[in-house]
Every structure is written in structure tokens, then in C-alpha cells.
Amino acid sequence: MTLSIDKPTSKKPPRLRDKTITLAHGSGGRAMQDLIEALFVQAFQEGPANALEDQARIPLDELTAQGDRLAFTTDSFVVDPIIFPGGDIGTLAVNGTVNDLAVSGAIPRYLTCAMILEEGLPMQTLRQVVASMAAAAKQAGVAIVTGDTKVVPRGGADKIFINTAGIGVMRTGVTPAAVHIQPGDVVLVNGPIGNHGATIMVARGELSLETDLQSDCQPLNGLVDAIVSVCPEVKAMRDATRGGLATVLNEFAESARVGIRLIEDQIPVDDAVKGLCELLGLDPLYLANEGKLVVVVPPEQAEEVLAAMRSHPSGTQSQIIGQVTEGQWVSLKTAFGTERVIDRLVDDQLPRIC
């Protein structure tokens, strides 16, 4: 499946009569063509005008008008369950790739979408996932312009796997990277941590718990726009996905050869996440997020950045959570006044989280 951006298609899309995905939908024949035209093309044509070619063609002048370098990323999504409170694998695929571009300082523009579908997947489930991707792309202001579809026999995959790649434009003069972090810099996060990991854990139905937890899955490019508008000198940004906040901060500390001291009372965690972690003996610092941004800024700009983050819908609960120090480890000042080392995650708390 490829959506080029040169010219629009004009013929009436075919009707999909199959109730489930069959091997014929990956054969390259009529069934596959009907699937592409009736489902993917119709959902993703919110972007530039498209035609069925073998590649997307992107005008360079539109990109160079926004910056001086390209940012390019790719990611794969295998979450279980594929539909959960607050989102599904489709919203994860779009927002995850948009956020990887955004935290590099880039303006996300174009995405690809490659799907591996298991024979027998309900067509309605696929429709929901594709609709979620289209809605997420529209919210983030990006276009899904090319992709691919493969079908494997029953048991060859678990319902649906998605790979997305993204192209963005790097803003001139904005180059966040962990190596820029220095002692004295301030660490911020844009809201409560651990919601995605906790939501997936409950959604698997293995704990017999009822909660109102929802994933925090959301695009962060608008929030990044707010940050760099007041602080183009931002030192580093990262979305805290697998491994959570603790893993991101350990990566920062190792890359910059610095220490980071967190204040437990200042780290936002929702009560439902706290309760689940206490029940299961987990640490919310290591739970996955899909809409949380960790940002490091110079100390003299911390309050201005905090105000800018709180003014954006994705950052209303933003907090300053710590400061960069000498040394090469991450530590946490607890509510009891003691201090403990926050190391890297040794093993997966929960596999197939995104």
C-alpha cells in the first residue's frame, strides 16, 4: 500500500464485504487492492492529495522552508491488548512516532504505516485501528503518506503489528541532546507518570481489578512547540516510554556524565497508579508512558518553561521534579528525607507495552 502525494484518486472506492482478514488480503490481487482502496486510502486521504504509486513524493521546498535538516525515525508496535482504555495500537503507532520526532526538536510532517495482519482479524477491529490512526494524525498535524500491508496465517502474529516511520524538519538553532546537560540544569515532566503501563496491566484482565485508569497516549509536538518558543536553548527532551521516567533519566546521566537528583514529593503520580503499584510491589518511576515528556533546561529559564508547559493542554500538570548534579547516578530524595539510588530497569515489568 502506498499513498503518493502527487495527484488525487477519483474513482469510487470498492466495498469491503469480508468480515475478517483472509490470506487473500495479502496476496497482491484484487482482495488486497480493495482493502487498500476502501480502507487505508479513504482513512488517510486527510493529508495531501494521493495516488496509488510505489512511493510518496515529498516537495523539498515545503521542508526546507521550515528548517535546515531532516529528522527521521522508525518504531514498531506490538501492544497487548491492541485496544485499551484511552487508545489502541493505532493511536500508539502515530503518537509514538510523532513524539520521537518532536523530542529531537523536529517539526513532524510525514509518516509511513506498515501493517502485519493475522488471518482472521475482524475487519471491524482493523477499521477501528485505522480510524484511530487517521484521527491521531489529524490531531498531530501530520500526514500518513505511504505504507505496506502483509497478511500472515493464523498464529503467525498476534492480531496486528504496526511499523511506522516518520520524517520531520529540524528547527534552525534547536538541537536538544543529552550531551548538552550540565550540573545546575533543571528537570521537568509534563504530568502524572505511569498511567499507560498501569492501564495496560489492568486491561489484560489478569488482576480482576476495576479502575478508571486510561492511557496517557497523546501527541507531544504542540507541547514541544510551546517549550522551544520560550527556550530554544533547551538542553534535552525525551518521551518516557518503555522503562519509564527512571530509564530516561539514567540515559541522560550516562550520556552527559552527570548526576540527577529527584524530589519524590514533586513527581506527579495519580492515586490509582500509586495504589496499583503498592498492591503489586511496582515502582511508578519504571512504568511506561505514551504522553509524557522529560525536559532539561537551564536553571534561569526553568520557571518560564514551566509556565509555558502549563499553558498547553498536554502540560497542565507539569512539574519541576529535580536538578542535575555532579556525579554519574540518579538519586531520589524520598518523602521521609532519605535518599536512594534510582538505577536502570533490570528486567521488563510488563512485556508488549507498546
Rank of each mutant, 00 (worst) to 15 (best):
T316G: 08
H196D: 11
D100Q: 14
P122K: 01
V341Y: 11
I342G: 06
P122F: 00
V230Q: 13
L117G: 01
E62L: 15
T74S: 14
P351M: 08
P298D: 05
S104G: 06
G337L: 12
A240L: 11
S4F: 04
T20H: 00
E53V: 13
L207V: 04
Q42N: 08
Q124R: 14
R257L: 14
I58A: 05
A56N: 04
T73N: 13
P13Q: 04
G222T: 07
R340L: 15
V145C: 12
L332W: 04
T164Y: 10
H25D: 01
P8I: 08
G327L: 11
E37T: 09
V179H: 14
T2S: 13
P13I: 01
E326P: 05
T20P: 00
D265P: 05
L23K: 11
G147H: 04
G205P: 05
P284M: 09
G327M: 08
A177V: 13
L23G: 02
K7H: 14
S318R: 07
N289K: 03
A102F: 02
T316L: 11
D265E: 15
V179T: 14
K292R: 15
N50T: 15
F336W: 15
T241H: 09
G29C: 06
G244L: 05
V296N: 05
P351R: 06
P8L: 11
M32V: 00
S132M: 07
G86T: 11
A106T: 03
G168L: 09
T73Q: 14
A131D: 12
G168T: 10
M170C: 12
R352W: 13
L117V: 01
I321H: 09
G315V: 07
A203T: 04
I353D: 04
P108K: 07
I263C: 13
K12P: 07
C354A: 14
I353L: 08
E37M: 10
T211K: 10
V305S: 06
D185V: 03
L70T: 02
A43N: 03
A307F: 03
L121E: 03
A308K: 06
S255Y: 13
R127A: 00
F252T: 06
V248Y: 11
R340H: 11
I36N: 09
R261S: 13
R352S: 13
G86Q: 10
S208C: 11
S229G: 08
G29I: 10
V94Q: 05
I321Q: 07
V103I: 13
L23Y: 01
L16D: 01
S27G: 08
L213Q: 06
G120S: 00
D100E: 15
M309R: 06
R57H: 14
D212W: 07
I320H: 03
V230K: 04
A134E: 07
Y286L: 12
A134F: 05
R257C: 12
F40E: 07
E53G: 12
D18F: 00
A65W: 05
Q124E: 15
V152S: 02
S4N: 15
D270H: 10
R257G: 13
Q218F: 07
V142W: 08
E119P: 00
I181A: 05
Q218C: 10
P313M: 03
G90K: 03
Q301Y: 11
S27R: 01
S314T: 08
L121Q: 01
